[in-house]
Measured scan of single mutants.
Amino acid sequence: MEVRTIKVFTTVDNINLHTQVVDMSMTYGQQFGPTYLDGADVTKIKPHNSHEGKTFYVLPNDDTLRVEAFEYYHTTDPSFLGRYMSALNHTKKWKYPQVNGLTSIKWADNNCYLATALLTLQQIELKFNPPALQDAYYRARAGEAANFCALILAYCNKTVGELGDVRETMSYLFQHANLDSCKRVLNVVCKTCGQQQTTLKGVEAVMYMGTLSYEQFKKGVQIPCTCGKQATKYLVQQESPFVMMSAPPAQYELKHGTFTCASEYTGNYQCGHYKHITSKETLYCIDGALLTKSSEYKGPITDVFYKENSYTTTIK
């Protein structure tokens, strides 16, 4: 009895394709271990004539594949690729409408935090270190965002349907971005203890939790000093293409032309909904596939993004 075979390709990165001759009487799992086709788990399936010449994702289970996976995804987590594939199996079914010149995501599976993050990423200057993220990001900007969303979920250790947080998501993504040249110098002034300067680099240099107003941050924000008295913390120097200011959701007025974009969060910790506000020729609110415009805006804002380049204080 002759062994019926077909020729397929296996890959971990969709760049390096490895030619395989597979036995049609055995499952993919018996031949390769966990195997995925377009995100779908085909591990328990036997090869079919229609699979001839198709590319299958496999887990990096030998040295060659491990090197290829690390170079593309910059992670050695053995569960990463499987999590990416199972997320992709959902995100490829989502709709990605162009809204006001940006790629958004039609609401499904509690994905409003991903839509808000995706919209924000198209408006701030950011370059990702893992080629996987950078490639998928370019495709997302062009309207094909399924891979990018699935990668975000995998890097953030999230599953489809789980509630997510924009600030946490951005923080994970910033860790995989090139923020080497970003720098922030802060000064804390206390009447009792004097003053202390701190220099922050990388992710810490672009994120701040405690106030939404970048102007206020430049002037000074009140913080408790270690001595128990009130101290003032203010920005001395900022070198970065953008800054992200966050605070627990509270009524906040966004003035046209003073910011790049913002995240609105309605609801409580267990259950809520994100919308995205962007400042173009007027203010726009993007909620999944829905767009509304207004000249002014007041609502429960939790993150505001500002364009920056270089700032030095005039406070002496």
Rank of each mutant, 00 (worst) to 15 (best):
R167L: 05
C225A: 02
V189S: 11
C285R: 01
T232P: 04
Q31C: 12
T76L: 13
K183V: 11
W94D: 05
F242K: 01
I124F: 06
T27V: 12
F70P: 04
C261D: 02
K201C: 09
D63M: 09
T232D: 03
K280N: 06
L291M: 14
F80T: 05
G267I: 04
S50T: 12
Q216P: 02
T64F: 10
Q30H: 14
K229N: 15
Y311E: 00
Q238M: 04
H176W: 14
Q98C: 15
F305D: 02
D13Y: 03
K7T: 12
Q195W: 12
L235V: 10
M26T: 15
P34W: 08
G202R: 04
T43I: 04
L179V: 09
Y72T: 06
C149L: 08
K275T: 09
T116M: 04
V22S: 11
W94A: 07
Q20G: 10
D41F: 02
N100G: 15
G299P: 06
G164C: 00
Y113I: 00
A140T: 09
W107E: 04
V243Q: 00
F305Y: 00
T198N: 10
K54G: 11
P131N: 07
Q98V: 11
Y265K: 06
R141M: 12
M207F: 03
Y96I: 05
S181Y: 09
N268Y: 06
D135I: 09
R141N: 03
N16Q: 09
G82D: 12
M245V: 01
Y297T: 02
E264C: 04
N89S: 14
H48K: 13
K280T: 03
G267C: 04
Y36Q: 10
C182W: 01
A140C: 10
Q134C: 09
T76R: 12
G53H: 11
T27A: 14
Y234M: 09
Y297F: 11
T266A: 07
E71S: 10
P47K: 08
T260G: 03
Y73D: 07
E281Q: 03
G228H: 01
A262S: 00
Q134T: 10
Y297M: 05
Y208C: 08
D109I: 04
V188G: 00
P300R: 09
L126R: 05
Q270K: 11
F259G: 03
Y155N: 02
G53P: 07
V203N: 04
E162W: 05
T91V: 10
G288L: 03
L121I: 12
E71T: 09
V21D: 14
Q230Y: 15
T232G: 01
R167V: 07
M209S: 11
N100P: 01
G101E: 11
P131C: 01
P249I: 02
Y234V: 09
V236R: 01
Q251N: 15
A231L: 03
P248F: 11
M245L: 11
Y274K: 03
G299F: 00
E308Q: 05
Q98Y: 05
Y284F: 09
L163F: 11
A231Y: 01
S295A: 12
M170G: 06
R66A: 13
E239K: 11
V185Q: 01
D13H: 06
T159F: 08
D165R: 04
Y72A: 12
T302F: 00
K298R: 11
T35Y: 05
V160Q: 04
T313Y: 14
L65V: 09
Q123C: 03
Y137R: 04
A205G: 03
L133H: 06
K219T: 12
C190G: 01
M207S: 05
V304Q: 02
V203M: 11
A69D: 09
V160F: 00
S104C: 01
S294C: 14
N89C: 14
A154W: 07
V58L: 11
V221W: 06
V3C: 13
S213I: 02
H273V: 06
T282P: 01
A289S: 10
K316I: 15
E239I: 13
C156N: 10
M245T: 02
K255A: 07
F305C: 00
P47V: 09
F128H: 03
T192R: 13
V206F: 04
Y84S: 08
V221D: 02
A145F: 02
P249Q: 04
L212K: 08
G272T: 02
T55I: 14
H276N: 06
T198E: 15
E52A: 12
Y234G: 04
S181M: 11
C156M: 07
A132C: 03
T226I: 13
Q98T: 10
V304Y: 03
E264D: 03
L151W: 02
V67F: 14
Q123W: 08
Y36G: 05
E2C: 13
N178I: 04
Y137G: 03
L126A: 04
V188S: 04
T75Q: 11
V188N: 10
R167W: 07
D287C: 00
G143K: 04
N178A: 13
V188T: 15
M170F: 09
L126N: 07
K280I: 08
V160T: 02
L102M: 09
T198W: 10
L118G: 00
C190K: 01
P131W: 10
S171L: 11
K7I: 13
N147R: 10
A87I: 06
S104R: 07
Q251F: 11
M209R: 11
T312C: 11
Q196L: 08
L186Y: 15
V236C: 07
H51R: 04
L102Q: 01
Q238H: 00
G29V: 06
V42G: 03
L81Q: 09
N309R: 11
I124C: 06
P60D: 15
V21K: 13
V243M: 01
T198R: 11
C156T: 13
D13R: 03
A250N: 10
A115V: 07
Q237V: 10
F174M: 09
L119D: 02
E296W: 11
Y265C: 02
Y84I: 06
T27G: 08
T19V: 13
L59P: 04
K201I: 08
K275P: 02
T232A: 04
Q98S: 07
Y113Q: 05
R141I: 14
K233M: 15
I6K: 07
V236G: 04
N100C: 15
E308I: 14
L290D: 12
K298I: 12
D38P: 06
T91P: 06
S86Y: 10
K218F: 02
V99N: 07
P249H: 02
K158F: 03
Y234R: 09
A69Y: 15
N178L: 07
Y265M: 04
T169I: 11
V166P: 03
V8K: 13
K219N: 12
V22I: 10
Q134H: 12
E125T: 09
L163A: 10
A140V: 13
T159A: 15
M244N: 01
D109G: 01
L186C: 10
T302H: 00
A136V: 02
Q197P: 04
G267R: 06
D63I: 11
Y234Q: 07
F80L: 06
L151P: 05
C227N: 03
M207N: 06
E253Q: 07
L173W: 03
N89Y: 14
L200Y: 15
N129F: 02
E144N: 12
L81T: 08
V42Q: 13
T27M: 08
A117P: 00
C193G: 08
P78Q: 11
M170V: 06
D180P: 05
L291G: 03
L200P: 02
T260H: 03
V8I: 12
T211F: 01
W107Q: 04
P47W: 05
S79L: 12
V243I: 10
T232R: 09
H48G: 12
Y138S: 14
P224Y: 10
A117L: 09
P34C: 12
N111Y: 05
A289D: 15
P300L: 10
P224A: 12
E144C: 11
G101S: 06
K298M: 13
F305S: 00
T35I: 15
G257Q: 01
P300V: 13
T27R: 11
A115R: 05
H51C: 05
N187Y: 06
K293P: 09
E204V: 02
T35N: 09
D135K: 09
K218I: 03
T91Q: 07
Y214K: 00
S246Y: 01
C112S: 09
H48C: 11
Q270N: 14
C225G: 04
Y138A: 15
Y274N: 00
N268G: 10
L118Q: 00
K158M: 02
G228A: 04
N16E: 10
A87H: 09
T199P: 07
Y155R: 05
Y72Q: 12
G101W: 09
Y113N: 02
A145R: 04
A69T: 09
L88K: 05
L133N: 01
Q197C: 03
A231G: 01
D41R: 09
G39R: 05
W107C: 03
L119F: 02
N147W: 11
S294F: 15
D287N: 03
S104W: 07
I15H: 15
R83T: 02
E296G: 08
K233Y: 09
T266P: 04
Q195S: 15
